[in-house]
Amino acid sequence: MAQVRKKEAEASEPCPSRAAAAESPGGRELAGSPRLGRAVKFLLPHTTIEAPPPQEEERQFYRRLEQVLGPTQGRFEELFRAQGWADVTEDKSLRKWLVREGHGEASRPQAGQEVTLKLLGVLEDGTLVEKDPKLTFILEQGDVIQALELGVQSMQLGEVSFLLTSFLYAYGHLGRDPDIPSDASLLYEVTLLQIRDSPDLGLLPPSGRISLSKQKRERGNFHFQREEYQQAMHAYQLALRILDSPGAAPPDPEEEEELQEHQVKCLNNCAAAQLKLQRFAEVLASCNAVLHIDPHNVKALYRKGKLLAEWGEDQEAMNVLKRALQLEPSTKAIHAELSKLARRQRGQPERPAPTAMDQPRLQDEPVQPAVGHSAWTDPGGP
């Protein structure tokens, strides 16, 4: 097929994922779904590019989905009141439709066990937004949305069920950019493939602990960016426990250096979440833990110095901030804090604080929107 220059295309090209997800086998479509295929209009000449057909697995999924939806024609509001669904939660915001029974009551997973799922999930208009043939996580560690945490604990090994969840147990008021809008209900088909005891961290090599810890830290960053600071702190603390698990084989010098690098990232991120929660004593403990590993960490020095200044420990705060300034002499935020301390000691009024753009930021830290939760200004995300 001839290539057409992008600049000739109109900007209103439909999303291919919505188009591919819309077909409903059996000759009719889910209510509100776009038609299969996408037409892209050009100025000259007029050209139509057909989207590839959905994979057979998705075709079968949409057949089963159509059977479950029945006469509601895809309206989730009716499914939340429909007969035949079991309520997983008392508020009826998470419901389950059994497709295939599992291996019996004794095969239900328990908190702390590791499970593997096959997962497909759609929005009300039929758009496929979740697909994972082997989603693996440990129950009750906050690695996935609550709908999956709670729904899976109601299932048996080998069971196949549809889980219908409101936004309360999914992605909340914020949604998930770019594919899940705010306040969106979701309908999942879940197959519980495997249940295992969680891995013994003491038996994991350093590379395995680093990989597992990184997953937890990234989950924490996801929560931090959504301003879910309690969940973020919990994820960072889990990441730290994985890195520092007792009984693990001692690492070689190179592995030890990598472990410490990840510990510093987790501790700094934890301090940022603790600041948002106004848990200032814990912030100081996190900063001290960072400085025990890396005495030249500017982020920890800045936070510690600023916190000490807020507590009136002016001389100690001055010493800490001067150490930070020696390491990063061009950072305006450190200059501003030192100037504020000096003016306070002379009895002069304070000047306005520097903007967030002037604040030191640790590399690899997630950017988060500036939202003030206390008088103590966070120097810029975890």
Rank of each mutant, 00 (worst) to 15 (best):
E227W: 11
D125K: 11
Q231F: 12
D244L: 13
Q146M: 12
L193N: 01
Q225V: 14
F167R: 12
Q67K: 15
E255P: 05
H335K: 07
L98N: 03
P251F: 02
S12N: 14
L186N: 02
E130V: 14
R226E: 06
V264F: 01
L157S: 02
I242T: 11
D125G: 02
W311P: 02
E258S: 07
L44G: 05
R303M: 06
L98H: 01
P14A: 04
H46N: 08
S211Y: 08
I145F: 05
L243Y: 03
F61Q: 06
S339M: 09
A333C: 06
F80Y: 11
S93V: 01
P14Y: 02
L164T: 14
D314N: 07
H173M: 11
L150T: 10
L139S: 03
A39L: 12
S166K: 13
T377I: 11
E256C: 02
G84Y: 03
V122G: 00
A31M: 05
K265S: 03
K118V: 05
Q83K: 14
V320F: 07
F162R: 09
L30A: 08
A300D: 04
Q156Y: 03
G102Y: 04
E255W: 01
R241Q: 14
K134S: 15
Q231C: 03
L157V: 12
P250N: 08
N288A: 08
L119T: 12
R344K: 15
E124D: 03
G158C: 04
L327V: 12
P246T: 13
L148M: 05
A248H: 00
H262F: 14
V88K: 02
H234M: 10
R81V: 11
R100L: 09
L139M: 06
E258A: 10
K214M: 09
R108W: 02
A300N: 08
V40K: 07
G158R: 09
P178K: 07
L341G: 05
E159F: 03
D314C: 10
Q153W: 04
N268I: 06
S374W: 07
Q146C: 00
A336E: 04
R38G: 10
A333F: 04
S17L: 15
F80I: 10
S93T: 13
E29M: 05
A356D: 05
A336K: 07
K265P: 00
T116A: 00
E256P: 00
N319I: 12
L36R: 14
E350Q: 13
S17C: 15
E261F: 11
R64S: 09
P71E: 07
I180W: 00
R38Y: 08
C266Y: 01
Q113S: 05
R351W: 01
F224E: 13
V264I: 13
V99H: 03
Y229V: 02
Q83F: 02
T48I: 10
E310V: 04
N288I: 02
R346K: 15
G172P: 04
Q274H: 04
L186A: 03
G158E: 02
L94P: 06
E227T: 15
G27M: 07
Q83W: 03
A336T: 03
E350C: 05
